[in-house]
Design a binder for these strands. Structure first.
Lengths: 95, 95
DNA sequence: CATACTAGTTTGTGAGGCAAACTAGTATGC
DNA sequence: GCATACTAGTTTGCCTCACAAACTAGTATG
């Protein structure tokens, strides 16, 4: 069977994880712009990813304005790589 | 944004469509065995695919026993190919 | 005619994605 | 110095939907 990681599989999160896979670390607003998600949905998807242990979220300040930094964990990278492998298998097996 | 086709994106259906992409036509029980889905879930996923116009379902008989044949439509093939293209983009863009 | 099997469909429920409402803190207008 | 607006998030409510379990229908067997 195809037991894909549902945390990664959700398109919004897949996009986020793919972004983070490249750039290591990003702030909330950047991810919002890149993904096209609303603040609300970005927040809840990041929470899911955090619960799964796939991202680390650091809350700090840029001057007096709050700044939230997000980065993929080792587990997150591994999960994404594994997902990619499985998905490629599924897609290419279907010549 | 990543607006993947949700009908195809669901893992169970992705597997079904990938299978059908190769073998053109299959019966209900074969798909059940290949996918590992229960009769109930296979039935409902096939209904979704049919509603989307992605598969054609033909009910006939093998002797006196009902036989359900399932095949991808042109639209189904196109949808899968498009999905695959988008997904590959997402996955490889994240070197 | 009752029990079992094959081949499916329908139903109930819990999880979850999305949009909208809410919160908190900072800057600006008057 | 209080109101209005803006930035940066979080929480809530609703509606969809995947999965499991229950149900249906028809055939073979004892």
């Amino acid at each position: 069977m195809a037991d894909l990681d549902r945390v990664i599989h959700e398109p919004a999160r897949l996009l986020l994880v793919a972004l983070l896979r490249k750039i290591e670390r990003a702030d909330f607003v950047f991810l919002m712009n890149e993904s096209g998600l609303t603040r609300g949905n970005l927040s809840s998807h990041l929470s899911k990813l955090e619960e799964a242990g796939y991202v680390e979220i650091e809350k700090t300040y840029r001057g007096k304005v709050p700044l939230t930094l997000i980065g993929l964990t080792k587990a997150g990278r591994a999960a994404f790589d594994n997902y990619r492998k499985q998905m490629n298998g599924l897609l290419t097996r279907a010549g």
